[in-house]
Design a protein around this nucleic acid. Structure first.
Length: 504
RNA sequence: GGUCCAUUCGUCUAGUGGCUAGGACGUCAGGUUUUCAUCCUGGUAACAGGGGUUCGAUUCCCCUAUGGACUACCA
C-alpha cells in the first residue's frame, strides 16, 4: 500500500466548529492507524472571508484536542507552502495548463449578468447552468472570435477561468464510505477554477494541492460529495491518479433541522466550538465550559463511527487502534448534550483526587478561599461522583466553606420537631467530648448515644444536617463534620438552633 | 425545481436471510442510603411505508415518503 498521507484543510473564516474538529480527528486517527502523515493545510483562497485569528484558533483547537500535526505552517515539511494564498502563482500555472489542453477557457461574463440569468431562469422554474448548452451564447474564449477575446485579455478585462465540462458522459467513481456512484456530466456546470482576483477556487486549489502534497486519502465532509465528479474530471484532465475519497456524514443540529453550523452557537445550550472565540460575536467553547479534551474527543469520535463493540470509553491511542474508515456511518448524527456531560463525568471519575483538588483549587481561589491541598483532596473525594465538571464541585461543597446563612424551609418543616433543639444541644455535648474527630469514631459514639437515649436516628441526623448544611443535601454527615472540625461543628449547632428557633 | 446521499428505541448506535432485534444516554419504577446524589435491579421504547425476490425478510432489489447536502468568481 502507498504511503498514507491525509490532510485537514479548513478555511480560516472564523472559529472551527465541532464538525470540523471531527473531520480533523478522523483524518488524524486514520493517519496514525496507518503510520501515515497528518497534514494541516490552510485554504485561504477567499480573501473576502478571511478572519483574523482564525488560523491560530484552528491550530490551538487541534492542540487542545491532542491532535498533533506532522506537516503544516508551524511544523514545516517538504510539501509546502501549507497556506494556499502563499502559492497562488503555482495554481495559476495549473489553470493555464488546462487552458492549453483545451479543458478550460476564459470567461468574461460579469457577476451581474450571470445573476440576472439565474434569476430569470428561476422565475420560469428552471435552473441556469453554465455548461455546454449555454456557453456558446455567453462571452468567453470558446464563443468569441479568437482575435476578440485575445484583445480583451490584452486590455485587462476582468475574466475567470472555467472548466470545460464535457456533455453527456457518465462519470463513475467510488467513495470509501458510500460505495459506487455514477453522475452524468450534463447535470454539471462549467465551474470557475480561477477567480478574477487572481486566486484559484476551492476546486482547482484542492486538486492541485492534494496532488502536489501526494495526498493518498481525502477524508472530508459530505457537503463535498456533489462536487466530487468535477474533481474526478480535473484529475483526469491533468492526467493524475486521484486519491481515494471518503465523505463523512454530517453533524446535525440538535433540533433536527439540517447540518450543524457556526450560527448554532450557544442557543441550544451547548457549545458548538472547541474553544472560546474572542472576536466579534464571541462564542463559548468546550474547554471553557469545563470539558476535558479526552472526553470531548471520545464523544466526538463516537458520533458517526463505532468499533462494533460495546466499549464506549476510549483514550486517543485506543481510538487509533480501533479506528477504520469502513466502520464510519453513512447517515448524519445528532449531537446529544446529555451524553456529552456523561462522557465528561466518566473522565472526571478517572482522575485522582489529587488532580481534581489541583483543578478545584483554582475555583476556590476565585471565591477567595485558600485551603491546604490535602484538605481539598479529601473534599473532592467526597463529592466527585455527584458532578460532571470541576466547576460543579463548588455547588456541592459551598457549605464546607461557609456556615449556612439560610435554612431550607421545606427541610425544616419536614425534619424540625419540638424536641429537636434540646436533642441537638445534647448531641453537641456528645461531640464536644470526642477527642478524635474522625468519621468512623464519631459515628459509633453518636450512634450508641442515640441508642442509649432511645432517640430516632433519622430524626436526629436529618435535623443535624439542617444546622450544619442548611438543607437536605450533601455527603455523609460524619465526613462533613470531620472535615469542618470540632469548633466549627459546635458553632453551627448553636447557630442553627438559635436561628431556626427564632424563625418558628 | 435539478443532481446526489441517507432512513433500527426520544438521541448515539449494534446486528442478522430464520434472534425474545442487543448496548449506552435520557426517562420511569423499585432497592440501598440518616439527606441529596451516587450505586444496584428492573421497566419503557425502534427496524419509515408499499411492492417484489425467497420456504422465510429488519437484512437483497424496486417504488413512494421523509430527512439532508449541493446547486456562487464560498469553502
Amino acid at each position: 500500500m502507498q504511503q498514507v498521507r491525509v490532510r485537514f484543510a479548513p478555511s480560516p473564516t472564523g472559529p472551527l466548529h465541532i464538525g470540523g474538529v471531527r473531520t480533523a480527528l478522523y483524518n488524524y486517527l486514520f493517519a496514525r492507524k496507518n503510520n501515515g502523515t497528518f497534514i494541516l493545510r490552510i485554504e485561504d483562497t477567499d480573501q473576502t472571508r478571511f478572519v483574523d485569528g482564525a488560523e491560530e484558533y484552528i491550530m490551538e483547537s487541534l492542540k487542545w484536542c491532542g491532535i498533533t500535526v506532522d506537516e503544516g505552517i508551524n511544523e514545516g515539511g517538504k510539501y509546502g507552502p501549507y497556506r494556499q494564498s502563499d502559492k497562488k502563482d503555482i495554481f495559476r500555472q495549473y489553470a493555464d495548463l488546462l487552458i492549453d489542453k483545451n479543458d478550460a477557457y476564459y470567461a468574461f461574463d460579469s457577476r451581474d449578468q450571470l445573476d440576472k440569468l439565474r434569476k430569470d431562469a428561476d422565475k420560469e422554474g428552471k435552473t441556469f447552468i453554465y455548461n455546454a448548452s449555454a456557453r456558446n451564447s455567453r462571452q468567453n474564449s470558446l464563443s468569441l472570435p479568437e482575435a476578440e477575446w485575445k484583445q480583451r485579455l490584452k486590455d485587462g478585462a476582468p475574466y475567470v477561468i472555467r472548466y470545460r465540462m464535457p456533455l453527456n458522459e457518465d462519470i463513475h467513481f467510488d467513495d470509501l464510505i458510500r460505495g459506487h456512484i455514477v453522475v452524468n456530466t450534463s447535470t454539471l456546470d462549467d465551474k470557475v477554477l480561477f477567480k478574477s482576483d487572481g486566486m484559484p477556487t476551492y476546486h482547482l486549489a484542492n486538486i492541485v494541492d492534494d496532488h502536489l502534497m501526494e495526498i493518498s486519502h481525502v477524508i472530508r465532509g459530505e457537503e463535498w460529495l456533489p462536487s466530487l465528479p468535477l474533481h474526478i474530471m480535473l484529475y483526469r484532465s491533468f492526467g493524475w491518479d486521484a486519491p481515494l475519497f471518503a465523505h463523512l456524514p454530517l453533524l446535525l443540529k440538535p433540533d433536527g433541522e439540517g447540518k450543524l453550523s457556526k450560527r448554532d452557537g450557544d442557543k441550544m445550550g451547548f457549545p458548538v466550538f472547541p474553544l472560546y472565540w474572542p472576536y466579534g460575536e464571541t462564542a463559548k467553547g468546550y474547554r471553557e465550559e469545563g470539558y476535558y479534551p479526552e472526553a470531548f474527543i471520545n464523544m466526538l469520535a463516537l458520533l458517526g463511527w463505532n468499533p462494533g463493540t460495546e466499549k464506549e470509553i476510549f483514550s486517543m491511542s485506543e481510538l487509533i487502534d480501533a479506528f477504520s474508515i469502513d466502520r464510519v456511518h453513512k447517515s448524519g448524527s445528532r449531537f446529544n448534550p446529555e451524553k456529552a456531560k456523561w462522557f465528561n463525568h466518566q473522565y472526571l471519575m478517572q482522575r485522582t483526587n489529587k488532580q481534581l483538588a489541583i483543578e478545584f483549587r483554582e475555583f476556590l481561589r476565585i471565591q477567595g478561599f485558600h485551603h491546604d491541598i490535602g484538605q481539598i483532596e479529601t473534599l473532592v473525594g467526597l463529592v466527585k461522583d455527584r458532578v460532571s465538571f470541576v466547576s460543579e464541585i463548588w455547588n456541592e461543597t459551598d457549605f464546607f466553606f461557609k456556615s449556612p446563612e439560610t435554612y431550607d424551609k421545606d427541610a425544616i418543616k419536614k425534619r424540625w420537631k419540638p424536641e429537636t433543639p434540646a436533642q441537638l444541644l445534647e448531641l453537641k455535648e456528645v461531640l464536644a467530648g470526642i477527642e478524635d474527630f474522625k468519621p468512623d469514631a464519631m459515628e459509633s459514639k453518636v450512634k450508641s448515644w442515640i441508642e442509649a437515649k432511645g432517640y430516632n436516628t433519622g430524626a436526629i441526623m436529618n435535623a443535624f444536617r439542617i444546622v450544619i448544611v442548611g438543607a437536605s443535601r450533601g455527603p455523609h454527615m460524619f465526613d462533613i463534620i470531620s472535615w469542618l472540625g470540632k469548633e466549627e461543628t459546635l458553632k453551627r449547632i448553636d447557630k442553627g438552633v438559635s436561628v431556626i428557633g427564632k424563625s418558628l
